[in-house]
Amino acid sequence: MVNLIRRDVILQKKYLLTYIPFIVFFIIMESHPALTFLVASIFIPFNAFAYDEKAETNILLNSLPYTRKEIIAARYLGAIVYMVLAIGLTSLALLAFGEPFTMKDIAIGNSLFLLFAALTFPLFYILKSGHTFTVVLLSFLILAGIGPQIVIFLAERLTAITDFIARFSVSTLYTGAGVIVMVIYALSWGFTAFIYQRKAF
């Protein structure tokens, strides 16, 4: 399974040359640190999916001595591994440019990444191959563009919910949100494994 995780990096060697400039671009554009952590985490896992779609890699993977559960596990565990690496690299880049950030920024950025991954990873095994990455990319851009406005809009109108949330401490809210995200990620993992077990290649 470790080799499956390493495979994503090996196949993307030429793209990795653009990884640091990609992060630096968001820093120079003075993007919110949470957004920078989010896009840095997305880079490798979703590029891997895009590559696999073009090359129809699943046919090859299923001919190797790995179970389908292991292939999916490598996807989900690999995403977490690359997220951790992205945290380190992005933190170093932000420090190098003298940009302040907090653990809150890391927590928000990576919680959003895990949530986005949980919602979109299954699509790569549900939708027709060749179109999924485009759908996911457009979804991300749309959510990044209008997501904050939607949250503000709902917060202003659903005051009962916001008042209820305001009763909890910040640490409780972050812990609760983290647990919810991890549960959703685990459910997504199980759902994707279920689909992949029954998919014909």
Rank of each mutant, 00 (worst) to 15 (best):
F97T: 05
L127S: 10
F164R: 07
V84S: 04
A107W: 09
L119S: 05
T132I: 08
G98A: 07
Y66V: 06
A144F: 14
E99F: 08
F121D: 01
L114S: 03
V84F: 14
P148F: 08
G109F: 02
P122V: 09
A96I: 07
I142H: 11
A96N: 11
L143H: 05
S111T: 09
V135A: 09
L138I: 14
I106T: 11
L77Q: 02
A86F: 05
P100I: 09
I80N: 01
L95E: 11
L119A: 15
L114E: 00
A118W: 03
R157E: 06
I71F: 05
I152F: 06
L127W: 13
L89E: 05
I146C: 01
F121Y: 15
A93Y: 06
S91H: 11
E70Q: 14
L85D: 05
I161P: 07
I152K: 07
F124T: 00
A86R: 00
F153D: 04
Y76A: 02
T132Q: 12
A74R: 02
T67N: 07
F113P: 00
F164M: 12
K104P: 00
K128G: 06
I72P: 00
P148Y: 10
G145L: 13
L141Q: 11
L92P: 04
L154G: 04
L92F: 14
L123G: 00
F121M: 10
Y82G: 03
L95D: 05
L137S: 13
L143W: 12
F121L: 08
A74T: 04
F168L: 13
I126W: 12
F97N: 04
L127C: 13
G109E: 01
M83R: 00
F140D: 05
M83V: 04
E70G: 00
A166P: 02
K128N: 10
D163T: 08
G98L: 08
F97C: 03
A118D: 00
T120P: 01
A160G: 12
I142E: 06
F140H: 10
L112V: 09
A160K: 10
L112D: 01
D163E: 15
L89T: 10
A79R: 00
T134N: 11
L158N: 09
H131F: 13
I108T: 13
